[in-house]
Design a protein around this nucleic acid. Structure first.
Length: 866
DNA sequence: AACTGTGGCTTGCTTG
DNA sequence: CAAGCAAGCCACAGTT
């Protein structure tokens, strides 16, 4: 009990053996610094024993991590706004007196009131004094900047740049930032007159060469009984295989021959090395020995499985120094000698998935991601190792390590470069870049910007305290403020449609109209007349907003420099690809900044600022419509930042673009031209054929991920037919064709000739099953069936496949469907029809409800504009 | 007591 | 982030 009490009391660090006691050779090895070492800053952490922050540099010559410990006597701290004397007598402070180094007065700028203020700075011996435990000061006193990770703070205060080059001149000298020669194509921009100092800094920082990074991927296999998934929290079953694949050509599978199946000839049978062990301990020991030679460790789900499993099994088997090598956090595993990149976390990141990779993969699994990005997947999935020959498992396991590595190496190390570039933009250590979301990346850079301006970072409630008055009721119930404007579509088929849109509208608004939490409803009287249209919200005229400035500069360097460089044909492909990564990474930030400022979880959230952005957006699109009408252009649709203009005079379009640019300082551009667009009465629902014959489908049910494959296929078949229609003749033929397809599909449904998987509706279970209290949607009904009948408990986020049935629930999970006779064919015919109606309606093709006959009305309408 | 029709509401998915 | 769609749930009212 005593030890438990101690644990609960909060000072958990004391439980950990002193680092000096366990300090292995591996750590000493990395803290020796050869004079003149050139390293890239990749990581940072805090050592509770020496009470120092340290930095991890990637030694570009020797390809290893070099660790440099702080020599500047920097300490953790936080700020207090009240009276310093009062603070000194605060009981919480008195209690921690022996752990507080000093309390000093400092001058900071309060960005909300735009004035200099005096604050008390509490300097502590270790970060836990400030925050992170039940006893920490921030639990008792309202402090400022008390929730920034200490090692991040360290980087900000000493102005270190993650991903930047440094020269290390010994343990007692502060690493010095050095710059590689700026490549001529970037220099050209640096010398151009319309580039300011801020942009120059960013250009230099981002365009610096990213060298090939030495790394190794690792994948373990656990010998578990059939049907039991090994748990890292309770590693009962032995590791019997560890596969490794490295950038220097190492390809190796380490095998603990648990079934005594292998002999001397085994190793020669593979195109990679195989080392056989007769116990698990030696296997693990050898794996650690190998990976310690690599500064960067790549895994797929290593945070929650491979690394904790290795560490705990190893410890069980007496490899006690593992706890000094693999550090387990609540939800991560880090290696002390280097950087651990868990690709599962990285690819799961929604910004990476959707913006960086355009949603190319949907399931977050090694197989699915490798399939989409590398064009190759696993050989085949093995559920149970017990009956599989060892040699086959070796191949399987090796393949995993190979794929994991290749996910970092394809497209000229795209992923490694992307990670480093994001680290540079966010000024965040690589370990965190790979594990945290885009809002954290943005937050991190903004904190650093506050530091540079000597701004005291306001607490969220102070920002909120400026007032949260909104000016319009949001369209959707439960939303906090109004969003975008969608123009009522004119239903029908429209030929020769030009789509003009505002180039990154929201970021441009934030930049041009100086939107930031401190500039919207600022403190100055003289700014009160600078109103957001139709509101009483005003915007600062005197000072540049910190968020506005950030989004502005990264937008400008992306559009003006890196986008151009990525398309510059005079550069070699490797460089173009590199600049493409940079502009892509910048895009991730640009696209996310508006979103996070409108999210109340974001520390710089301010509702009127988010509302100001969308209101300017509505104003801009409305002005564009007005202007278009004045010019005699016909606007048939528009959404947020776009106008669909029918059969326009190109000169008028140019007039519109220049007029808007002049009036609003926002850039309009022609985005695409449709051969024809089919609009219905529904917003966000249309399809169109572009000039090059490619097809755009937006919002239609047939495209949704939940739609059964069978219906999807019919839908795409019909789209495909329509795509190729060019004349009235062809149209008639197409209608016949479509009629047959629908008839055929319906017959198949009635005869129950469609395989059940083809009819499965895939729905995400977004909450735990028992959290659906208001209603019980069909997929939840199915999930409950699955749980009661098969004992399978679905996790939130998992996708369940359901079949519409004739029974009382009307639905059953695919797994529980016993016979095709249970399938509710009528429902599927209904679903098929409603799906197809969305396209056929606008074409004036109507499906006869009973006979599945098609009828075409007003054919002439269709070809009116040809 | 069992059915039908309606509208408000929840849920999931997509668009920008 | 909000707007907007489809589908289904569910309470309620009004039949049958």
């Amino acid at each position: 009990m005593a030890s438990l009490d101690k644990w609960l009391s909060g000072d958990r660090r004391r439980e950990v053996p002193r680092m000096e006691e366990v300090k292995s050779d591996s750590i000493k090895k990395f803290t020796e610094i050869k004079e003149g070492t050139i390293g890239i800053l990749l990581g940072s952490d805090y050592n509770p024993e020496s009470r120092k922050a340290f930095l991890k540099f990637y030694d570009v010559k020797n390809h290893r991590i070099v660790i440099w410990y702080d020599t500047t006597n920097h300490h953790p701290y936080a700020y207090y706004k009240g009276d310093i004397k009062e603070l000194e007598n605060n009981p919480a402070i008195l209690r921690k007196r022996d752990k507080i180094i000093d309390i000093i007065e400092e001058e900071k700028i309060d960005p909300l009131n735009d004035e200099k203020i005096k604050v008390a700075k509490i300097i502590a011996k270790d970060p836990l004094v400030i925050g992170g435990s039940r006893e920490s000061l921030r639990e008792y006193i309202t402090l400022w900047e008390a929730d920034i990770k200490y090692y991040a703070n360290y980087i900000f205060d000493l102005d270190f740049e993650v991903g930047g080059y440094y020269i290390l001149e010994g343990v007692d000298k502060i690493p010095k930032r050095i710059h590689l020669e700026v490549p001529p194509e970037v220099k050209k921009f640096l010398d151009s007159p319309n580039i300011d100092e801020n942009m120059k800094d960013w250009l230099i920082r981002l365009s610096e060469y990213v060298p090939p990074l030495k790394r190794i991927s690792l994948d373990i296999e656990v010998y578990n009984p059939r049907g039991i998934v090994p748990q890292a929290e309770n590693p009962e079953f032995p590791i019997f295989m560890i596969s490794l694949y490295a950038s220097d050509g190492l390809k190796k599978v380490l095998v603990y021959d648990i079934r005594s199946e292998l002999d001397e000839s085994t190793a020669s049978k593979f195109e990679f090395d195989v080392e056989v062990f007769n116990n698990e301990r030696d296997l693990i020991k050898r794996a650690i020995e190998i990976i310690e030679e690599y500064p960067i460790i790549i895994t797929f789900n290593g945070d929650n499985f491979d690394l904790p499993y290795i560490r705990r099994r190893g410890e069980k088997l007496g490899l006690i120094d593992l706890k000094d090598k693999i550090r387990l956090g609540r939800n991560d595993a880090r290696v002390t000698w280097g950087i651990h990149i868990d690709l599962y976390k990285f690819f799961k990141n929604v910004s990476i998935k959707n913006y960086a990779f355009g949603g190319a993969y949907d399931v977050i699994s090694l197989d699915s991601i490798a399939q989409s990005l590398l064009g190759k997947g696993k050989t085949e999935k093995i559920e149970y190792f017990g009956e599989i020959p060892m040699e086959e498992i070796i191949r399987y396991s090796f393949r995993d390590a190979e794929l994991t590595y290749e996910l970092t190496s394809f497209n000229r190390d795209l992923v490694m470069r992307l990670i480093i570039i994001i680290g540079r933009i966010a000024n965040m250590v690589i370990d965190d870049v790979c594990r945290l979301s885009v809002s954290n990346w943005i937050k991190n850079r903004l904190i650093h910007l506050h530091r540079k301006k000597n701004y005291l970072i306001p607490r969220p409630e102070e920002i909120k305290g400026k007032g949260e008055k909104r000016h319009f009721q949001p369209i959707t119930k439960g939303k906090k403020y109004v969003g975008a404007l969608v123009i009522e579509p004119k239903p029908g088929i429209h030929f020769n449609v030009h789509v003009v849109d505002f180039a990154s509208l929201y970021p441009s608004i934030m930049k041009e109209y100086n939107i930031s939490y401190e500039t919207v409803n600022c403190v100055h009287e003289e700014c009160r007349d600078n109103l957001v249209p139709d509101t009483t919200t005003w915007i600062c005229k005197k000072k540049r907003g910190i968020i506005s400035e950030f989004v502005g500069v990264i937008r400008d360097i992306r559009v003006d420099v890196f986008k151009k460089l990525s398309k510059d044909k005079t550069l070699d492909e490797d460089k173009r690809e590199f600049y493409n990564v940079i502009q892509g990474a910048l895009k991730v930030f640009i696209n996310a900044i508006y979103g996070v400022t409108g999210s109340d979880a974001f520390p710089f959230y301010y509702l009127p600022a988010a509302e100001a952005v969308t209101l300017y957006g509505r104003y801009a699109i409305n002005r564009a419509v007005e202007k278009a009408l004045e010019l005699g252009l016909e606007v048939i649709y528009g959404d947020t930042d776009s106008l669909f203009i029918k059969n326009p005079d190109p000169n008028k379009i140019n007039e519109l673009i220049s007029g808007i640019e002049k009036e609003l300082h926002l850039k309009l551009e022609v985005d695409k031209i449709y051969r024809y667009v089919a609009l219905s009465t529904r917003k966000k629902n249309y399809f169109g054929v572009l000039k090059d014959g490619s097809i755009d489908i937006k919002g239609l049910v047939g495209k949704k991920s939940s739609t059964p494959p069978f219906i999807k296929n019919v839908f795409y078949e019909i789209i495909h037919i329509l795509k190729n229609v060019n004349s009235e003749e062809e149209f008639k033929k197409a209608v016949d064709n479509i009629r047959d397809i629908i008839k055929d599909a319906e017959e198949k449904l009635i005869k129950k000739a469609v395989p059940p998987e083809e009819l499965a509706i895939s729905v995400t279970l977004s909450k735990p099953v028992d959290k659906y209290t208001k209603t019980t949607p069909q997929h939840v009904k199915a999930a409950r069936k699955l749980e009661s009948k098969l004992g399978i408990r679905l996790q939130p986020g998992s996708v369940i496949r359901i079949i519409k049935t004739n029974d009382r629930d009307g639905v059953t999970p695919l797994e529980l469907l016993k016979s095709v006779n249970e399938i509710n064919s009528e429902k599927y015919i209904e679903l098929l029809r409603s799906t197809l109606e969305q396209i056929l309606d606008v074409l004036n093709i109507h499906v006869d409800k009973i006979k599945s006959e098609l009828e075409v009305k007003r054919l002439d309408e269709f070809f009116k504009f040809k």
